[in-house]
């Protein structure tokens, strides 16, 4: 239970960064930290005490494996996170090119 709470604390650090910071790169870093904590939370849910890695061995019958389903889901999620980070970075580079700043409060023309 304490591990879940620590994982949530990590999520809250990322959430604080997204909500409070005004630099676009800091916001992207906050989103990345939230993504890390969610991946870790999935894998924590699938862990089993004295579990083995979910890979069969030759001439050996392994009884207690950890849960492979969250690992399979997280595996796709990591690569998607990298692509999403690259997309955010490219948008940030475009904004820097156009307005010359990373500060979101200085970008007036988006305010309609």
């Amino acid at each position: 239970m304490s591990l879940y709470l620590l994982c949530l604390t990590l999520f809250c650090v990322g959430l604080y960064g997204v909500l409070r910071k005004r630099n676009i790169v800091k916001i992207i870093i906050g989103i990345g930290i939230m993504e890390y904590s969610m991946n870790l939370f999935f894998v924590l849910l699938g862990y089993r005490y004295h579990g083995r890695t979910p890979i069969d061995a030759q001439n050996q019958n392994i009884l207690n494996m950890v849960d492979p389903l969250p690992q399979a889901l997280v595996m796709t999620s990591i690569v998607i996170g990298l692509a999403a980070t690259a997309l955010l970075i490219s948008i940030a580079i475009r904004i820097y090119e156009k307005y010359g700043t990373f500060d979101i409060t200085k970008i007036k023309r988006l305010k309609g």
Partner: peptide, 27 residues
């Protein structure tokens, strides 16, 4: 991930983190 018995995820996270760092530093 290694401690939680997920070596697939550990490999993927390692290489993805390196690429992510390169892109972030480049930016």
């Amino acid at each position: 991930f290694l401690i939680l018995k997920a070596p697939d995820l550990a490999i993927t996270q390692l290489v993805v983190e390196i690429l992510c760092l390169i892109i972030l530093i480049r930016a």
